[in-house]
Design a protein around this nucleic acid. Structure first.
Lengths: 223, 223
DNA sequence: CATAGTTTCATACAACTGTTTGAATTGCAA
DNA sequence: TTGCAATTCAAACAGTTGTATGAAACTATG
């Protein structure tokens, strides 16, 4: 129906404006002007401004989560139920980073919107993010299966650190570029992902591996 | 003079209100009511609302930066100009984490204000954060002296990851607690710092160290 | 004490915000 | 075509916001 066109136009214009100018200074009037619809249409179709923002964010983050889970499932399937830890972490941070990094002018509106959402964090978005825990639990489960000897605490910290690095790399990409005077190439998305995965893997297995090697060393010394 | 009392009262009330309720829904009228001063006093003493927020944030972050640099300097002095990498990283993330983590009811107003600033990130604060790069460069320099063999790129990434983990741990402490169902103890501040430092050290030296140990192993095998 | 400068105050301003209203229009089904 | 629901529209609402003003009160200096 014609109503769907209006709805879609609002969503489109809103996402673009938020992506370009941030949440703080985009008003409903800006949105309806860009969408060529009446001011009341937003409240008619979405109920409120916050619900409009929430719908935008939910749509995008559901897509990311789906992508993450697909990668996770195929990694686990390939390993007969147990995926290697690096594959799990790659499934966790890959989709987000691929979406949000890369050449600035090539970034989709959706990506730039999600970056804004990550940086500015308005109330409706915060509320949704708080419900993301169930989704993360699936990754915690996969990690537990992959590294059954690691303690739960270590697994959670590893998961947290992986997300922290990915998230903050998106949020602060500009600072890292300035600080390193361009040396750190954030357009090399695959490279960034591998870096984060490598560090996370070390965080999860590093000391154990070192200890194991040391133990070997000691055993040989004893001989 | 009496003017200083008003100024101080405004700063005090503003910091407390922002810490408690966030930037989004604290108005100048809330602040002046809490401070028992006239509405016009804010503009008289600070020029504008944004400049008030900026002054609050600058004061606090200068204090943190000073603390960081003190720790860095004494670590470098102790090592004769070269501090061990873990000491450098501890100086980088320690002050912030010690300020912002720990039992919630014991957190100072200043700490809670800085957490808000980290989560909500309003324009005047964003502007200030962008000028923090010079401060970070000092840490990059210390890291270069500590690990002269590592490439510049690796050092910057290591610095970035350390900050990312610290920062995100503050921002998302609630999520980690929920996700781990309390297993990850964020009140054990020293433990958290050591975890972040350990991972960062591994990120910077990890594979190198493993390689070195492996080389030792091979050398002994050859004997 | 007088005066100049600083600080406080009540009040008004001007603009902007998201939301609501009720009538007009449209589109579809009977 | 008629009737009914869904949608669009212009307009107004009700409230809040940060800021400006100009007079009043205060303070310290000469």
């Amino acid at each position: 129906m014609a109503s769907d066109r209006t709805r879609a136009a609002i969503l489109d214009a809103a996402e673009r404006l938020y992506a370009d100018r941030g949440f703080a200074d985009v008003t409903l009037r800006d949105i309806v002007a860009a969408a060529n619809v009446n001011l009341a249409a937003v409240n008619y179709h979405f109920g409120s401004k916050d619900e409009l923002i929430a719908e935008l964010f939910v749509t995008r983050s559901l897509a990311t989560n789906r992508e993450r889970l697909n990668e996770l499932k195929s990694a686990e399937a390939a390993g007969g139920g147990r995926a290697p830890i690096d594959a799990i972490l790659r499934a966790l941070v890959g989709p987000t980073l691929r979406g949000c990094l890369g050449p600035e002018n090539e970034r989709s509106t959706a990506a730039r919107f999600m970056i804004r959402a990550s940086i500015e964090s308005v109330p409706p978005i915060r509320r949704i993010k708080n419900r993301e825990i169930d989704h993360l639990r699936k990754f915690a489960g996969a990690m537990r299966r992959s590294l059954p000897d690691r303690s739960e605490v270590d697994l959670y910290w590893g998961l947290h650190f992986a997300l922290a690095m990915a998230h903050q790399t998106i949020r602060d990409s500009e600072r890292l570029t300035k600080l390193s005077e361009g040396l750190c190439d954030l357009n090399d998305v695959a490279g960034v992902i591998e870096r984060i995965v490598a560090v996370s893997v070390m965080a999860l297995t590093g000391r154990e591996a070192e200890k194991r090697i040391h133990a070997k060393l000691l055993a040989r010394d004893a001989r």
